[in-house]
Design a protein around this nucleic acid. Sequence first.
RNA 1: GCCUGGGUGGUGGAACUGGUAGACACGCAGGACUUAAAAUCCUGUUCGCCUUAAAGCGAGUGCGGGUUCGAUUCCCGCCCCAGGUACCA
Length: 928
Amino acid sequence: MDYQYREIEQRWQKFWAANQTYRASNQSSKPKYYVLDMFPYPSGAGLHVGHPLGYIASDIFSRYKRLKGFNVLHPMGYDSFGLPAEQYAIQTGQHPAITTEANINRYREQLDNLGFSFDWSREVRTSDPDYYRWTQWIFMQLFNSWYNVSTDKAESVTQLMAHFSAKGSAGIKAVSDEDVLSFTADEWNALTEEQQQTELLKYRLAYLKESTVNWCPALGTVLANDEVKDGFSERGGHPVVQKKMMQWSMRITAYAERLLQGLESIDWPEPLKEMQRNWIGKSVGASVKFEVESLKDFIEVFTTRVDTIFGASFLVLAPEHEWVTQLATPEQEKEVKAYIEQTQKKSELDRMADTKTVSGAFTGAYAVHPFTGNPVPIWIADYVLAGYGTGAVMGVPSGDQRDWLFAKHFDLPIVPISDAQKDLDQQADPTKEGRYINSDFINGLNYQDAVNALIFKLEQKGQGKAKVNYRLRDAIFGRQRYWGEPVPVYFKNGLPYLIDEKELPLLLPEVDKYLPTESGEPPLGRATDWKYQQQYEYELSTMPGWAGSSWYWYRYMDAQNQGVFASKEAIAYWKDVDLYIGGSEHATGHLLYSRFWNKFLKDLGVVEVEEPFKKLINQGMIQGRSNFVYRLIDEEGRGTNTFVSYGLKDQYKTVAIHVDVNIVEQDILDLEKFKTFRPDFAHAEFILENGKYICGHEVEKMSKSKFNVVNPDDMVERYGADTLRLYEMFLGPLEQSKPWNTNGIEGVFKFLRKFWRLFHDEQLNFVVSEEAPSKAELKSLHKIIKKVEEDIDRFSFNTSVSSFMICVNELTDLKCTKRQILEPLTIVLSAYAPHITEELWSLLGHQPGSISYAAYPIFNPDHLVEDEFAYPVSVNGKMRMNLNLPLSLDLADIEAAVLANEDVQRYLEGKTPKKVIVVKGRIVNLVV
RNA sequence: GCCUGGGUGGUGGAACUGGUAGACACGCAGGACUUAAAAUCCUGUUCGCCUUAAAGCGAGUGCGGGUUCGAUUCCCGCCCCAGGUACCA
């Protein structure tokens, strides 16, 4: 029988499902291996051909690891809370749960079509109450915890309260809000319940606070920093404004240093680590206090270059700085107010775009330089950001280009501070080389000594200290939306309290509409009879999209557990994710939050590891490849019914129109299908070249409107899942982005047919011989065993596919029909093309389904040893020739043989080589 | 600007620690089989020169240098592309 891929694939997919072939056990004598894909948001559009790329790679890896004797956990689920389902619900009134369910079913069908070895018994859905009760549970733990700097971990708020009532706030070093109080035990105990709770809120890792948030009016919700790109929402591209609001936040900043340090221990792509480093944005420097006599207070600045302090000729505050209005002298008040107004008018975007023009205003006030005692003028300018550091900087024009520009513009002094600085009339020179000048007690010192001396003196005077600053901000956690996890909190006297753990899950209530209420409350405000213990208001915002995805890999370990998010035993067994595959777009969102929650859970003692994802691979994006037809336009510029082929289009007036890529093959248009593509094309006429209509093409994002979406189902229908799997890998390196192009898929399809034919005679009857294999056959087999092992280890799946093709071509040439060759080859290929190999495996007489756990054939290097080697020999690296010599000779004999060779003699021109270059036991070059 | 990748035939891409550049596949050209088509198979395919042919010669991995017997690979300088990021003090 010929290769009937549809029948074969459907049969085995059914078999695997019915027999739960890929069900993983939490107990095994085998070593564990956990392969995880970033779970998808089930959108209404279904999967396109780019989505499965990572899933195919992880599936190959999982299958390979199973063959290698590992107990593999390879689960899949859905990140099923999210905006599109809610927006659809707003438009249609249909409950998001219903659309989500329908989308999931569609996704599942498409995934099943591709023959993945997922353990579906562990499926999770973040919108499932059985799942989100544990998301809520984790939130409760965060609410109940504070970050103890002394022990460098999260600890229980209950213990913190005990400490407060026994010893007061003394001895507590915490990551907390800035406005925490100092108090004795007695003072604490005298506080009312409300006062205590208010104070504790400043310590909790999940806390409620009035803060400036990114408010997106179009979406009616706040967004986290990573959900905002250039002043617009990442989803939908709506404008985002800054607004003060009472909001739930996560104290991720407590973990900044651990999140940074942890990157050193994990095997992730460097660009991605770099993105996280930048996002955390650690800078080491000092904070320095400048006294302001008029205020009888200090302005604190942060600097990474405290060594330049003697060059500080002015201070600059952000226009939003809280002291600006008090500082402004009566003479300067007008100017300052005008400047503040001017900056307020500028949108975030304008401010970012306009970084060239220097602007600012003098407040009229002066600060005192901590060392020289000289007056330092205080300015305001919008190049200083309120949200970073202290919102104030010292201006050192000789060492910082922005300060230099500012000084030039406003004619402030530029004081050189190092003998190595040059061209200060042209630009700032931030060099750390040289010795200090004009710098009092650090004159003549080098950089490091100067910094040490300055910090020492500052600390002595109480006017500064070494300080580390992070760019990372606490993450806003509340969303004014319906389709998310309810926050398990109720309010009493305006203060938040956790609901009883026994009440979990706190179910999402039914509402009549999915819009905010008339009074501007989130959609949950519409729920009737929704009160805690019939009297207390629940929190009305829901959790953000990243809540459910920040711990889901643990739920897979023990997905059915009703008593705990995952049992201690399951967590102890699976520990962490060995391989995580997904897109790099989650670098500063999901991947950072997950690491944060994981570290918190580690502090809590409920998980075992500090870092959840040991190795991470970013699969590249698959872009669309759009095709175009060129429609002739008449004098009035209207489209006619005639279409010109790509090569001839320049001779006519045409307009390019997207054409469905599914009716184009090798850029050649299927004319009949085109006529049915759109009704007005029914009577289309064509101007052809060489009898064909050639389409133009362009790489664009894959989207419906561009008619360049390729559905994996269509590919499976036409070529089979095995071909699609191999082809997606063959397309190029996994981590590289590339346009989808169906042009080469035939080659992969041909390969599978050839492979199938190896097992069949000319009448297409299944037949294998029991004869002993030949040397050449064994060589071919062992080459592929080795190659695939090496390739998989370095995630080079594309070269494996090429090697399979070479192997099958060799065996076809050898007319190999031997079981001892074909059987191991089938095992090796089964990771890539599971269906065809499963079919052949069972035709070979094995138990159905058993190939997935067959032993990977053992590579024997002896089979690759050659008796003869084609020596590439060159003289002076110039000429090259191949000499076939037996390998059994020793080096001296080989040298003699090489020298005796006629061609070599000719090129040596009678000279004797001065040097003989030997590489890996082979002579490769003679130097005359 | 800075950070991180990358630049190889008509195309996708190989070449793992410096050792025969262009594997494998697509496409293209030619051929075999067939009444024909599909399918399959074979040959050629970096560019240039030379030759009836076999063969041979020269150039060649973004550009310019360098190290080396030998460089797609290492070093220096530059150009271009992609992703990230930014008045972050």
